[in-house]
Amino acid sequence: MSNLNPISPSSDNSNGFSRFIKKFYWRDYVVYITFVVIFLIFSGSLFKMGFLSPNNLLNILRQTATISVMAVAMTFVLAAAEIDLSVGAVAGLASVTTAIIIGQFGILAGILAGLLTGVLIGLLNGFLITKVGIPSFLVTLGMQGVATGTAMWITKTAPIPIANETYTFIFGSGNVGIIPTLFIWTILALLIGHACLKSTPFGRQVLATGGNETAARYSGINTKKIKYITFVIMSVVSSISGMLYAGRLHSGRFQWGQGDELSVIAAVVLGGTSLFGGKGSVIGTIIGAILIGLINNGLILMGLEASQQMIVRGAIIILAVALTGRKTQS
């Protein structure tokens, strides 16, 4: 109606604004808005508990690093319309292999052993999914058991201590100035992941594969190869995350990373990546991961019991994902 009325600038303005609101892709920004809102709420209500102290904030970053790093790789997996449920278990197994080999052959061999663990599991996952044709959900669910079981078996479920201080400094316990090395790992994952998804042929091909696999194939993309590579990267990054656990906790143990797959996937979906593929944002993912850490931290400061924390955390994640998911359906 106001189109017919040229003399009303105010209605034109509100028109423009409502158009802006309509055009604004909520799902892409839900994570940032939620982040700011929750941060402000916690800043106010938990101020006396020291929520805003630099120490607490650095702590949040330290604790979320392992999730953040895996979530960056998971962004690629979900963007390619696949899923990997074995990430937490792979992290646990890699922490164990690294710890054992460091004890016997030193730091370099230990790091290589950890990476090799990831490469092998990634190759196996990729092979079963793309060559044999088993859905990734099932393959990686099975691999979760295989990896955890192997880690328990070779350690007889005991933790393997790591005495090498260079290792623990680089992988998780050290600080460069006031900056924790874990935060540096997060930034590294963010930069490499973002550039890779946004600006390399590989990233574009992952998105195309997830958006419409047939059309991608008709465009000459070897979609199986793209997925294969994605799964190998995912497992290698999970093993790096496992090594970060080992560094932070000065030991390798099968339990490190257990159950992380859920937080990782939640972080990625919160960050605006579609569970159905074709869309992904590494920056959103990192914010999503830190948001989950923020919630955990706030709940602990509030003095909630572990059981109560789980309930609140679950509810917040469902709410945020429901908000992000709305746009996908329409």
């Binding site: 574009r204 091909q205 195309a208 047939t214 008709y218």
Partner: peptide, 24 residues
């Protein structure tokens, strides 16, 4: 089904063959 990924933009569809041929 075969020609385009409809959720993606013109540019994102347009670039695929050339990217794949490593020309860009």
């Amino acid at each position: 089904l075969q020609g385009l990924s409809t959720m993606h933009s013109i540019k994102e569809n347009f670039e695929l063959p050339l990217i794949n041929l490593r020309k860009l």
